[in-house]
Amino acid sequence: MSHPVPILSISVEDQIVRYLHAKNDRAIELIFENYSLAMMNVIRSVVKNEAVAEDVLQKVLVKIWEKGDSFNPQKAGLYTWLIRISKNAAIDETRGKDFLRSRKSESVDNFVFNGEAIHQKSVQERKNGVWESVNQLPDAQRCLIDMAYFQGYTQKEISQELNLPLGTVKTRMRKAISTLRRIF
């Protein structure tokens, strides 16, 4: 006679912690897959230079690997820990170095331009149907998403940059995310 075995649902955070403790480099792959966008956003908000941000993210992944077996989920959430390491590494990187500060001084027009640049992607990608999906996201919403998730802007900074009330930024951001969730 056979018996069913209850299968536990294991969250990705738990999987990562287990792999970190076991010194299995699958942990780093899962972190990259799930959290690298936010980690990069934090790093970029500090160093404001794409190439430097990429170098810092690489160093952060190695640092996480080195410290991973001593990470205690009882003391801090995994995500907060990852973000803290990323931010500290980015700050360390900027000390004593002259970094370009151009990213945040870019005008709104530039972001709109960046949004337009997205439209100029390859014909092959258009054929794959990617851009039909992206096109469902209005330019204004795409601009907000770009600033908040790819350019390292806080909602307050977006409000100042776009000269919009903070409440409006929050509302539009939720709407943009809602549109994204419908598409992706």
Partner: peptide, 27 residues
Amino acid sequence: RSSINNYARQVGKAPSSSILTKALADI
């Protein structure tokens, strides 16, 4: 997080996989 990650991958805004490759090689 899932929709933002998916969107970023679709529009080529996700961090380059070469960063992961280099980090794993370092490790």
